[in-house]
């Protein structure tokens, strides 16, 4: 058994992806150690979501390698890929809750899909998971459309952790929430990840959130990871680009592209 330093949980090398003529990822390299929490920073449209979707297998890269536990996932067959997917949780940027199903069925969707639970038991299990994210069991009977933005994020978080994954992705978990609710969600994420002992990768462009959630941070710019380092140093990392981004300065090496 090699140590976590030798075999990262997730390892990306030279991952490239273009949509049409637009090169979104242009050689992404990333290492995420087992049990650590990585935060990916970057401007809107810089390819953060695409990076995670590549690891999840929702987007197929044009080139490069993606390894999970040392296995190249791009070469896996359908069954192995599905088996890997069973161990991964994902919180989507806009929640992506199923509005045709009540909250409890959303939360237990993966457990039901994997036949790890019967429908009769699912309501109780959903209530337990909802309690973990600070929601009452009665919320389970509601439809996602009846919930406020903050509650939807909590339900999406509950759905992402319900099947006890060992890798979890969070795509902008606090975007669109007020600062207090953002801090609450961050706290829940840290608690849940710790309880599961999972490896976490989060996308954010909120610095306070990045420092709260992350052990490590990486910054993506023009399709590459331009910096990786401890999340605690954000804002005084010594890298001009990261510091400009973290401190929200208009002048600096990063030029906002208003139009491509």
């Amino acid at each position: 058994m090699t140590g976590p330093a030798a075999t990262p949980k997730i390892r990306m090398r030279g991952v490239r992806k273009a949509f049409g003529s637009k090169q979104v990822l242009d050689g992404v390299d990333l290492d995420v150690g087992a049990g650590s929490s990585m935060v990916i920073l970057g401007g809107s449209g810089s390819g953060k979501s695409v990076t995670i979707k590549c690891i999840l297998g929702l987007v197929t890269p044009d080139a490069g390698e993606i390894e999970v536990d040392g296995v190249n996932v791009l070469k896996l067959g359908r069954r192995d890929r599905e088996a890997l997917g069973d161990r991964i949780g994902m919180l989507f940027q806009n929640g992506a809750l199923f509005d045709s199903l009540p909250v409890w069925e959303n939360v237990c969707f993966k457990l039901l899909a994997q036949n790890r639970i019967t429908r009769a038991k699912a309501r109780d299990r959903a209530a337990e998971v909802l309690a973990q994210v600070g929601l009452a069991a009665s919320v389970g009977e509601l439809s996602p459309a009846e919930l406020s933005g903050g509650m939807q994020k909590r339900v999406a978080l509950a759905r992402a952790i319900a099947a006890q994954p060992d890798i979890i992705f969070f795509d902008e978990p606090t975007t669109g929430l007020d600062p207090i609710m953002g801090a609450v969600i961050d706290g829940l994420i840290v608690d849940c990840v710790k309880k599961l002992g999972a490896t976490a990768v989060s996308i954010t462009h909120d610095m306070a959130s990045a420092r709260r959630i992350g052990d490590e941070a990486a910054m993506i710019y023009k399709g590459r990871m331009v910096w990786t380092g401890p999340a605690a140093t954000l804002g005084h990392s010594g890298n001009a680009m990261v510091d400009q981004f973290a401190n929200g300065e208009r002048e600096g090496p990063i030029q906002m592209e208003l139009r491509r």
């Binding site: 599905e82 997917g85 989507f92 809750l97 199923f98 969707f109 993966k110 899909a113």
Partner: peptide, 20 residues
């Protein structure tokens, strides 16, 4: 309309990540 809305709100991708 129903499936299209699911596509543009990432619900179809969510299904895949939920073992379906």
């Amino acid at each position: 309309a129903e499936i299209g809305t699911m596509r543009v709100t990432d619900q179809i991708d969510a299904l895949t990540t939920l073992s379906t």
